[in-house]
Design a protein around this nucleic acid. Structure first.
Lengths: 337, 337
DNA sequence: TCCGAGAATCGAAGCGCTTCAACAAGAGCG
DNA sequence: CGCTCTTGTTGAAGCGCTTCGATTCTCGGA
């Protein structure tokens, strides 16, 4: 393994000069810099990560904690994770993958051992046991999702409340007077994952504001549950003319179930999905949707962390505004005068 | 930050003794060991990962390279990744996440900088540019998938050839005489990802062996493409009584399309899927399937790496035998005498 | 002419750990 | 009783890097 002293000797400078060329922390003359860089190239030199971490007290690694649970959509997690990795690389960092399973101890472990400089934690619940832990660590972190008490923490997420609202707004604007929300599975609500509740709150509040009748139904993420849900909605809410789905796996099955029940979408029933754009676009019938900006979230989360690592102040809360894209699944309500 | 000397002082021993208690590389008296462990607990000591890596020349981190491309099913990748992380943790290692995007340079970077001790590379193609690179690294690696030239490398995968065969065997055994394979998208074949080709080869060879007429069709992973494929198969192969699907996203849509064409599954048409068990089990009609053992693969890959890191010899090739689980989607062929 | 500031470079200390050689203290043996 | 072996422990070296003064040199201004 070639080391910094080899490079230094080859370039006829001291090791510290090589280090400064690499880090740019002191000015180095053009000539020396080029010579050193050439030596580095020639010898194929790579600084030893461990040595660097030890000397500089920076590992240049971020921890990413991903969830492994029912009710969270795997492609979204993956999209997010990839986005975090790419963003981290742009800032010369790598990403250590942790699973929810590791829990609080895992966070402590990687933080206290200086394996990572900072942490990104996905799928934060309202009363998340990891939150106090994160607060006590001496390393910065960014949470995806908002705990009940976010004091002292940096959080980011899609503004799900606004997402729920914007769906109703869109539908109310089209003249719909009775709308339903098909949400996450009951266990997601049960464990108090904020996003499900917030979407519901936004949805319900906006409905009230617009004088629209609303109804909310958690739903299991299976095609079969979607079919039952469709049947039930039609049975119990004969005036229903629009549905918001916030449950990725059943977006397509639900639309399909409505269609098989003889409803035309959007003529008889409008559907808005809260899901990644790709899913909405690629559906058999392209769906009006509010996107889940996983990529944007990942990128922003990393940027927040980098700012914190650089000692900058960052906003404690970042709520990305929802973006609704009208597609072929929504139209004027049946009873529109 | 508490360090090893703090622990040593607290326990009344030398730092090296603490180190040996931690690593178990030398015998330590029961009394001393307990005292040291208690001090560690009390002080909340965590060895500094960088210092450890520098001194021991081991980072206790594995690199995992995940693919990001069309034609590979995200949930399978995720399952695999999680399995790798869990297995690595059982061996006291962590996992650094790299994307395909990083390419060969990324491998070189993390290996040469001693950031990782070993690498797991997913989705290896027949002529993969990373293969020569891996061979030249001085760190062990395990590939998921088999390149054309695997000399000097350790590879593991499901035995897709046998998987293709076992599907045909199962169907031939049920009396089917004309079977179809609906495979991965054309681009997967084009980039010479071994698994698609191998499944096809096994399928075709077994069909010939059993005297069964066979036909193979790549297919895009969209519901719409699945519908077209179903229509086309029925039109072009009127004698077809069984289909093997090796393309996760369209497993359900394809079955659905056949059913909507008026065929009863399995009475008129048998279907075997090559996909994760969960997908096959949760389908509206539980499907006979050959599982994609992502979890097992991840675990085995890590175990191979650990063995290599410990200086043990490991088999160059590991092919997991396919496991076919009969469920409700296959039955005796129409023309069964 | 002299001084001070700034630019470029270097030497050495030190980051926190592992590991090796060395040694002390018993234990076992003839 | 003296010898060798084993077991338990230690001190010190060293892993490869960063960083903090210190040093040299150059240049501009007083």
């Amino acid at each position: 393994m070639t080391k910094i002293t080899d490079v230094a000797r080859h370039a006829g400078v001291s090791p510290s000069t090589v280090s400064y060329v690499l880090s740019g922390k002191r000015s180095i003359s053009e000539g020396t810099r080029l010579r050193v860089q050439e030596s580095i190239r020639l010898l194929g030199y790579r600084p030893h990560a461990g040595a660097r971490a030890l000397a500089s007290n920076r590992s240049n690694v971020l921890a990413l904690v991903i969830p492994l649970r029912t009710g969270i959509h795997v492609p979204v997690v993956m999209q997010f994770a990839v986005s975090v990795v790419l963003a981290a690389r742009r800032h010369d960092h790598d990403v250590l993958l942790l699973t929810q399973e590791e829990g609080e101890d895992g966070l402590r472990r990687v933080a206290d051992s200086a394996l990572v400089d900072a942490l990104v934690v996905m799928d934060v619940e309202l009363h998340d046991a990891r939150v106090p832990m994160l607060r006590s660590l001496d390393r910065p972190s960014v949470l995806i999702g908002f705990p009940a008490d976010a004091a002292g923490l940096t959080c980011i997420d899609l503004d799900f409340t606004a997402a729920g609202e914007v769906c109703v707004e869109h539908l109310a604007g089209l003249g719909h007077r009775c709308v339903g929300l098909v949400g996450s599975p009951p266990e997601v609500y049960a464990r108090e994952t904020g996003f499900a509740q917030r979407t519901e709150d936004g949805f319900t509040a906006a409905a009230r504001r617009y004088g629209v009748t609303s109804t909310v139904h958690p739903c299991q993420p299976t095609a079969e549950a979607a079919r039952e849900m469709a049947a039930r909605l039609l049975r119990e809410h004969p005036n229903l003319t629009a549905v918001v789905v916030h449950n990725e796996p059943i977006v397509e099955p639900l639309v399909d179930a409505f269609q098989r029940s003889g409803l035309r979408v959007p003529d008889d029933l409008s559907v808005v999905a809260i899901c990644p754009d790709e899913l909405a676009e690629r559906a058999a019938l392209p769906l009006t949707s509010v996107t889940i900006p996983a990529e944007e979230l990942g990128k922003r989360a990393v940027e927040l962390l980098m700012a914190k690592l650089d000692g900058h102040e960052v906003p404690a809360a970042t709520l990305l505004p929802p973006r609704l894209t009208p597609r072929a699944s929504t139209a004027r309500g049946r009873n529109y005068a």
